[in-house]
Amino acid sequence: MRPLQLKMSAFGPYANEESIDFERFGKNGLYLVSGTTGAGKTTIFDAIVYALFGSVSGDQKETNMIRSQYAKPTTKTFVELRFCVKDRIYTVYRSPEYERPKARGEGFTKQKAQTELYFEDHTLPLVKAGEVNAKIESILGMDRAQFKQIGMIAQNDFLKLLLAKTEERSKILQELFHTEAYARFQEKINLKANQIKSDHGK
């Protein structure tokens, strides 16, 4: 999956609409997001994951708490991600449920959640959250947990990776990408190979 453009409105620390044009950075699909503490790096990842899967990247956060506390009451909260998979372009739009001022009179009313997935070939868009979630998982070939494992590396894990020695780096990569099962399989194969060699040696 290669992100093309990300729009965030009243999302996290962003009070207004912010847009990131990933196409400016070429087509390699590998990006380093850097900045000082509190600059909003994690929010970019949160927005991408929320757009794709309907939940933010931090497990402790709830989707009904992602509306910016700095936004004006009339500013709508939403995330829109345009992305490319296997030369096909998709646009997903999500807005969480939140309270907004009533259009008439005093008090607040609930703004209903919205989920929409658009296709470049003008196929009718999907507008039900369950259908959108299933379709995106099918397009990406992975679910939210898998996307977090292989699509993004958090700065703390990346720093540990940079400073680690070769043996420790292998261990960190194994933890990051959850490849313990493959390591166990490799160990079994090696044991079996050694047993075969031993039997033939007799």
Rank of each mutant, 00 (worst) to 15 (best):
A129L: 00
F45V: 15
T37I: 12
P13G: 03
L162N: 00
A145S: 12
M8L: 12
I139Q: 03
R184Q: 14
Q149F: 06
E167T: 06
L52W: 06
R104S: 15
Q149K: 15
G201H: 15
A154E: 05
N156Y: 02
E131A: 10
Q69M: 10
I89E: 15
L163R: 12
V85C: 09
N64S: 01
R24K: 13
G12K: 14
G12N: 11
N64G: 06
I48P: 03
K197S: 14
I150S: 11
G58S: 11
K7L: 11
A193Q: 11
N133V: 05
K192R: 15
L52G: 01
K192P: 02
S34F: 14
T91G: 08
K72P: 00
T77Y: 01
V92H: 08
K61D: 14
T42S: 12
T179W: 12
I153R: 03
L117Y: 05
I172W: 03
T77G: 04
K7D: 11
I136M: 06
K102F: 07
S170Y: 11
R24W: 07
S170L: 14
V56W: 02
I66P: 00
N28C: 09
I44R: 02
M142C: 14
T75S: 12
T42W: 03
E97Y: 00
I89K: 13
V127T: 09
A15L: 09
G12W: 11
I66R: 03
Q5V: 01
D199F: 15
D157Q: 08
T91P: 05
S95F: 04
T166G: 02
G38Q: 02
H122G: 02
E80I: 13
Y182H: 14
G58W: 06
I136T: 03
Y31D: 06
V132M: 06
D121S: 03
K76H: 10
G151N: 02
K41F: 04
Q155W: 03
R184W: 05
E175H: 13
F158Q: 00
T166S: 09
C84E: 14
G38M: 09
I136W: 01
G38S: 04
T77R: 06
Y98H: 08
L162C: 09
L191E: 13
S34R: 02
T179L: 13
Q174R: 15
T179F: 07
I139K: 04
S198R: 13
A39N: 01
Q60V: 10
S57Q: 03
N133R: 08
A15Y: 05
K86F: 05
E80C: 08
E18T: 08
T91C: 09
L163W: 02
P3L: 07
N16G: 01
L162E: 04
K41E: 01
I44S: 06
P96M: 12
I48C: 06
Y70F: 15
E106T: 15
N190S: 14
I89C: 06
T91W: 07
Q5Y: 08
F22E: 00
T43V: 12
D199Y: 09
I150F: 14
